[in-house]
């Protein structure tokens, strides 16, 4: 089992619904977020391209945040999900520095927080909150090890990319382009 997320940039409108849904689902305090929207414009008027992306922790297979954590609070669980155990986190911030995606933040209560792929929802067979709320249905979640899963099929048939592949982190959030 290897969980991954596939996001279709051709459909994403950048509305940030994924951000609010995550905040209300996971009690993320106001002023913080576990996911966010990036807008990339290229070209000049009127020959333009716009890419909108919902970004978050990439749940990397080679996660620098886990390697650099001095207490073991940052760890990988079944399915390749990277989690933080809050009561083991001393808030040193090494993981925040090490993440090429800037996916982690210091929670006001002192520990480091980030996307969990809505682990608690997966346990109940539900999709992550962001995936289930998206009005454009541009986000897909599933098991990369299953060649017949929707995400495996999408990655097989569609052009895609990951963010900062040069960082060597083996990210598991894929963008259809």
């Amino acid at each position: 089992m290897r969980y991954a997320m596939v996001i279709d940039t051709l459909k994403c409108v950048g509305c940030s619904d994924c951000v609010v849904a995550c905040q209300t689902e996971n009690n993320v305090p106001h002023g913080y977020c576990r996911d966010w929207i990036t807008e990339a414009v290229s070209g000049s008027y009127p020959n333009l391209e716009l890419e909108l992306r919902s970004e978050r922790c990439n749940h990397c297979a080679n996660p620098p945040c886990v390697r650099c954590c001095p207490t073991g609070a940052s760890h990988v669980v079944e399915g390749g999900i990277v989690l933080v155990t809050a009561d083991q986190c001393i808030g040193c911030g090494a993981c925040i520095e090490s993440c090429p995606y800037d996916a982690r933040y210091q929670h006001p209560d002192g520990y480091v927080d980030k996307c969990t792929f809505c682990h608690h929802r997966l346990e109940k067979g539900q999709q992550p909150a962001c995936v289930s709320v998206c009005p454009t249905k541009c986000m897909y979640f599933g098991d990369l090890d299953d060649p017949n899963s929707e995400i495996s099929q999408l990655l097989k048939n569609r052009k895609h990319k990951t963010l900062s592949p040069e960082a060597g982190t083996d990210p598991h959030v894929f963008y259809l382009i």
């Binding site: 305090p29 106001h30 933080v84 155990t85 809050a86 009561d87 209560d109 520990y111």
Partner: peptide
């Protein structure tokens, strides 16, 4: 919002 609680996973 989230009451102060160090056990994030447990809290969630």
């Amino acid at each position: 919002l989230l009451a102060p609680n160090p056990l994030l996973d447990a809290a969630v």
